[in-house]
């Protein structure tokens, strides 16, 4: 058991002919993911490095039986790509692309919620079920199969914590990078719920950052619904008020969304909060 994806999940790549799309299609396949093809309008019927190309998501799904898609197209075209996949009833859609406009993300999330699609991202590193499959860009070399569910808002911090867990001999069930933008369909609560209901996940790590109130809402959810032990970390303690540190989501507005407030809320919910990432494996021993 794992959440969201396993070795049987058939995946297509939207934007497979692009620089990032091609590179990561290969890495995903090497890791064991069933990458069954990709889309690039106008190149349908061709092949690239052994991957069949389709004009549309619908055609790709009909031909290959794919149930998941990952979007690597530039931000300008992400909305259209996502709507196409949602309208084709893709079960799992991951948007890696960074810099999608807020209004576009609102429409994508709205449509995904109304439809039959579970959306991860945008601006996220994707999902990996160690030893089975990955969707997105989390390096396969750092994970190892095990029983810890990892959920994180930041890409590179996701890698960092996974690496520290693996080095400490603690494997992961599934790792979900939910993405750095404020608007998303799969947030901490949804990821925590998946891990709570997954028999293979015994413990949970959540990595948050300043800005917004997703961590505070997660704290309320954990108090009520999560029975498994949770360890946490919040990035951005040194951030200056009103300064964005790269992520649209990471803004400190007054005292809403500060590292201090989040750490307090999560601690009160029973989450063991780490000062530094290297404390997390220690907490979960």
């Amino acid at each position: 058991m794992a959440v969201l994806l396993d070795k049987n999940t058939k995946v297509i790549v939207q934007g497979i002919t692009g620089y990032q799309g091609m590179f990561h299609a290969k890495l995903m396949k090497e890791y064991g993911t069933q990458v069954v093809g990709g889309t690039r309008p106008g190149k349908g019927g061709e092949e690239i490095d052994g991957f069949p190309i389709f004009d549309s998501v619908r055609e790709a799904m009909d031909e290959t039986g794919a149930t998941a898609s990952v979007i690597f197209v530039p931000a300008k075209f992400s909305k259209l790509a996502a709507i196409e996949a949602i309208n084709a009833n893709i079960e799992l859609l991951t948007i890696i692309t960074e810099g999608v406009p807020v209004v576009d993300t609102m429409e994508i999330v709205h449509r995904a919620k109304k439809g039959n699609t579970r959306l991860i991202g945008p601006n996220c590193p994707g999902i990996i079920t160690p030893g089975q499959a990955k969707i997105g860009i989390i390096p396969g070399s750092i994970v190892t199969p095990g029983e810890i569910g990892v959920v994180s808002r930041s890409g590179t911090l996701t890698y960092e914590v996974i690496d520290q867990l693996t080095t400490a001999g603690m494997g992961q069930s599934t790792c979900i990078g939910i993405g750095g933008d404020p608007i998303k369909m799969t947030n901490f609560i949804e990821a925590l719920e998946l891990f709570e209901n997954d028999t293979n996940t015994k413990k949970i790590v959540m990595i948050g950052e300043i800005g917004g109130n997703a961590e505070e809402l997660a704290a309320d959810f954990i108090k009520e619904h999560v029975t498994k032990p949770v360890a946490g970390f919040i990035a951005g303690k040194t951030a200056r008020e009103g300064k964005t540190m790269g992520h649209a989501g990471a803004i400190v507005h007054g005292n809403v969304g500060t590292a201090e407030g989040k750490i307090k809320a999560l601690t009160q919910a029973g989450v063991k909060m780490a000062d530094k990432l290297s404390d997390i494996p220690v907490f979960l021993k």
Binding site: E98, I137, G155, Y159, E160, A235, G236, G246
Partner: peptide
Amino acid sequence: SVGAGLGMATADLIEYFGGSPRNFLDVGGG
């Protein structure tokens, strides 16, 4: 840093270990 989250965590750790970051500079993904 490569990645904003990692950059924030790095800045936090610099202060944790008694240093002070001059800047936050993220080259982003890719």
